[in-house]
Computed example of a mutant assay.
Amino acid sequence: MRLTVVDGDITTQQVDAVVNAANRRMRGGLGVDGAIHAAGGPEVLEDCKRRFPDGLATGAAGWTTGGRLPARWVIHVVGPNYAAGERDRSLLTSCYSGALAVADELGARTVAFPLVSAGVYGWPREDAMRAAVETLRTTPTAVEEARIVAFGRAAYDEIAAVVGA
């Protein structure tokens, strides 16, 4: 699998699936979650309600339609909330390995990822980057390209340094 980094907006990526850093309720939220729901339109929320009436557990992954996004699917993962005391790193890495497993089930060959839990959930950024890169590089998958989408040049430079290391 090819691991790449781009500076851009995850909602505009021309990929088979985008990964959403969702909350347990699966009803939209802030940050990446809010952006994906806004760009994907009401179809994403309706599919979340239908597929996940009780939400999704921390560390778990599931999919919905991409709605109005360029991507066909949204793979939702619920990262651990470090700021609220959820500090088990395996919950964070399971978001990435679980997303790849879902992508394989769907037949997705290109997948765009955000840095899960590194925003409002407060996971230390350096470790969030290492967890993403290590897990994406070591998880067996049929995905051909895993793309980490950085929002802004500074974030791109940080992530690219970890990918290149």
Results as ranks from 00 to 15, higher is better:
Ala61Lys: 02
Thr58Asp: 01
His76Thr: 00
Ala99Cys: 08
Ala71Ile: 04
Thr110Tyr: 05
Thr110Leu: 09
Arg109Ala: 13
Ser97Asn: 11
Val77Asp: 06
Gly85Ile: 04
Gly67Ala: 10
Ala103Met: 12
Ala83Gly: 15
Pro80Lys: 11
Asp88Gln: 13
Gly66His: 05
Ala60Asp: 13
Trp63Glu: 14
Gly59Asp: 03
Leu56Arg: 06
Ala112Lys: 09
Pro114Phe: 01
Arg89Trp: 09
Gly79Asp: 03
Glu86Ala: 14
Ala60Leu: 04
Gly67Arg: 05
Asp88Phe: 06
Ala112Leu: 09
Ala84Arg: 15
His76Cys: 02
Thr64Arg: 01
Gly59Tyr: 01
Val77Met: 03
Leu106Ser: 10
Ile75Lys: 00
Gly107Asp: 10
Gly62Asn: 02
Ala83Ser: 15
Glu105Gln: 15
Gly98His: 12
Asp88Val: 12
Ser97Gln: 12
Phe113Asp: 02
Asn81Trp: 07
Leu92Ser: 12
Thr65Gln: 10
Gly66Lys: 04
His76Asn: 05
Thr58Gly: 04
Thr58Glu: 02
Ala83Thr: 14
Pro70Phe: 03
Ala57Val: 08
Ser94Arg: 15
Ala112Asn: 09
Pro70Ile: 00
Arg72Cys: 03
Gly79Phe: 01
Ala99Val: 12
Tyr82Ile: 01
Ala57Arg: 14
Ala57Leu: 13
Thr58His: 03
Val102Asn: 06
Tyr82Thr: 02
